[in-house]
Amino acid sequence: MIRKSNWPLALCAGLLGIGQNGLLVVLPQMVAMTGLSLSTWAGLLLFGSMLFLPASPWWGKVSEEKGCKWVVVTSLIGYLLSFCLMGLVVWLMAEKTIGLGLGLSGLVISRVIYGLTVSGMVPAAQTWAMQRAGTDQRMQALATISSGLSCGRLLGPPLAALTLSIHPTAPLWLMAIAPVVGLLLIYGQYNDPPLQAITHQSARMNRGLLPFLCLAALLAASISLMQIGLSPMLSGFISTPSAISHHVAWLLSLAAASTLLAQFLIVRPQRLSVKPLLLVAAILMSVGLSVMVTGQLLSLYVGIAVTSFGAAMATPAYQLLLNQKLSLGKGAGLIATSHTLGYGLSALLVPFITWLSGQHHLLAGACIASLIFLVITCGLGFTTHSQRAR
């Protein structure tokens, strides 16, 4: 029997969220067990993520040629192998069986496997879901995959913290075992054929796509700056590190819950068409970050909820607009690449903003990025109306 549900695909995308946020929880333990510095581990994690830049567009092309099922299965196998290797290397380094040089080499290889394979997961899952949903239900399909990713990011930290009580490397083995569940679910899924290209849809990159890719990069940069800027902002009126960590955890949990709420209440039911959805999302992001910049505890909670709600609406909106101009697989790959570029831009902006005006202004940088996002969104609407007038 052919199964057409997109929730198995959402679960596979959620594994990526579990891995991303779960690693952050076990980072102090991995530093202690391996003897590698925190900056070295941060570089390893960033290295794996930056490999998404060349790999995501390529996987988007492969998903159109070989089918999305092949890409998702390959990504799950790569996910399994990378965390198995990481768990093994960390354990051997903790037992002093291998030295720093050999251990670091093994960790680099594990991140190469991760970056070059797992980078295909979300673009392929999104493309596959849209193929199943058909042209009229693409927004709902994207929301389903985004919901799975959000759930993974929400569940990753508590699952990692829970398994830490068993053994310091237990979270890594949990992340290695999780893809087996995904493989079992995907095995019975039908590999849907690609949808025929819609009107004006292209197979190649062109300058008309740049505004949508800029939106994706700006959203990722603003959200990343917002998250990094929470601790410095809280330190302005909260003295103890434990209390700051407590509030950061609650703020990030609220952000994840707000994201899910937007996906289930607005995006999945398709209550707004694409362009109004993008405009409302841009306004909410700008308003939310403007509220957060005021620096009060209540304003941080209100602002992060509003910002996350808007960001959850924005992502499917600009992806659907891009897919009107570019084939599904390549569009999903380019969006993933733009998100990675946005995170990289954020990493560059953090030291610059800190040097220029201090850590307390990181949220202001996020707010400026959201305002640029709003300007580009308004520009897209104006361009469309001008073209219609002609």
Rank of each mutant, 00 (worst) to 15 (best):
Ile2Glu: 12
Ser5Glu: 13
Asn6Glu: 11
Asn6Tyr: 07
Leu15His: 03
Leu23Glu: 13
Pro28Met: 05
Ser37Leu: 03
Leu51Ile: 03
Ser56Pro: 05
Gly60Glu: 02
Gly60Leu: 01
Gly60Cys: 01
Gly60Lys: 03
Lys61Phe: 14
Glu64Thr: 09
Trp70Gln: 12
Trp70His: 14
Val72Gly: 01
Tyr79Glu: 01
Leu80Arg: 04
Leu81Thr: 04
Ser82Arg: 01
Val89Thr: 09
Val90Arg: 05
Glu95Met: 10
Lys96Phe: 11
Leu102His: 11
Gly103Lys: 11
Ser105Pro: 04
Gly106Val: 09
Ile109Tyr: 08
Ser110Gln: 03
Ser110Ile: 05
Ile113Tyr: 04
Gln126Arg: 09
Thr127Ala: 15
Met130Phe: 04
Met130Thr: 11
Ala133Pro: 05
Ala133Lys: 06
Gln140Glu: 14
Leu149Asn: 07
Leu149Glu: 04
Cys151Asn: 03
Pro157Asn: 03
Pro157Asp: 01
Thr163Arg: 07
Leu172Thr: 06
Trp173Pro: 00
Ala178His: 01
Val181Leu: 14
Leu183Asn: 00
Leu185Tyr: 15
Gln196Phe: 05
Gln201Leu: 15
Ser202Asn: 12
Arg204Ser: 08
Met205Gly: 08
Pro211Phe: 01
Leu213Tyr: 04
Cys214Asp: 10
Cys214Val: 05
Leu215Cys: 14
Thr240Tyr: 08
Thr240Pro: 03
Ser242Tyr: 09
Leu252Trp: 10
Ser253Leu: 15
Ala255His: 13
Val267Ser: 00
Gln270Asn: 08
Arg271Lys: 14
Leu277Asp: 10
Leu278Ile: 04
Met285Trp: 09
Gly288Ala: 10
Met292Asn: 02
Leu300Pro: 03
Ala314Ser: 14
Ala314Arg: 00
Tyr318Asn: 02
Asn323Pro: 02
Lys325Ile: 00
Ala332Gln: 00
Leu334Ile: 07
Thr337Pro: 02
Ser338His: 04
Ser338Cys: 06
Leu341Arg: 06
Tyr343His: 14
Leu345Met: 12
Pro351Thr: 11
Pro351Asn: 06
Pro351His: 08
Ile353Arg: 00
Leu356Val: 13
Gly358Thr: 11
Ala369Asn: 13
Ser370Phe: 09
Thr384Trp: 08
Ala389Ile: 02
Ala389Tyr: 05
